[in-house]
């Protein structure tokens, strides 16, 4: 059974996570993965390790972990892989894989252009 784990940075302002929770709801509705969950690197619960454990407890045999990050850096290249590798040791029968950070996905440029076009429309109508 496939699980999708969104790895977010976390924030001392809990409302900063509202958007990511809405996106998780959209992904649940799409039904591509039996489990869709969010794990936070810092500040918020569950942390990523606990989120992996939740996926496994729900019956996941494959977990795709996606960094909800716009930039590469020490979190992306060191902290997240270490957390996932430690989780793989705890759950030897589960395949845990990690995707690129979302800033590398082509949809982000399209999204930004959508935001720009909305701003241009607002500016022109003023």
């Amino acid at each position: 059974m496939k699980a999708l784990l969104i790895m977010a940075h976390g924030s001392p302002r809990p409302e900063a996570n509202d958007d990511i929770r809405r996106i998780a709801d959209v992904l649940r509705a799409r039904g591509t993965h039996a489990v869709v969950t969010i794990g936070y690197l810092d500040c918020n619960d569950p942390d990523i390790a606990a989120a992996v454990d939740e996926c496994v407890a729900a019956g996941a045999t494959e977990i795709a972990a996606v960094p909800y990050f716009l930039h590469s850096g020490k979190h992306m290249l060191r902290d997240l892989p270490e957390i996932l590798e430690a989780a793989a040791v705890r759950h030897p029968g589960v395949k845990i894989a990690m995707g690129d950070y979302i800033g590398q996905e082509p949809q982000i440029a399209a999204l930004l252009l959508d935001r720009v076009q909305a701003a241009m429309g607002r500016a022109s109508s003023e």
Partner: peptide, 13 residues
């Protein structure tokens, strides 16, 4: 589109 970006990332995991 963020949902699409996440799924695209997951496919290349």
């Amino acid at each position: 589109l963020l949902a699409d970006a996440i799924l695209s990332s997951a496919e290349g995991a």
